[in-house]
Amino acid sequence: MSTLHTVNKSPFERANLQSCLGHAQDGDCVLLMEDAVVAAMAATALAPKLADAAQSVKIFVLGPDLKARGLDPAGVADGIGVVDYDGFVDLAAESSAVHAWL
């Protein structure tokens, strides 16, 4: 069974996302939320890293947190799915464990 990893810190400020991606197993899901949603945008310097990670894990971003920060879901990088709160619940329910990288 797979794990859902949640990350809520900006990768420009903290290494949480980097560490999470370094420990996620093939087939796990990673949900970017709160300040971590910035990492989902195609235009950031981190996009290649995220695209690379998306080869082995499924990456999602929480829509309401994008919206709150004025970030357009249309600008999210290819390969990253936008989910709402219901989608978040579904991801958690489908996973055997949730690992919050606080």
Binding site: T3, G22, H23, D28, A97, H99, W101
Partner: peptide
């Protein structure tokens, strides 16, 4: 370490 984490029922970080 990644593999170990995957084997846990509960991970608190």
């Amino acid at each position: 370490m990644a593999k170990l984490m995957g084997e846990m029922d509960v991970v608190m970080t």
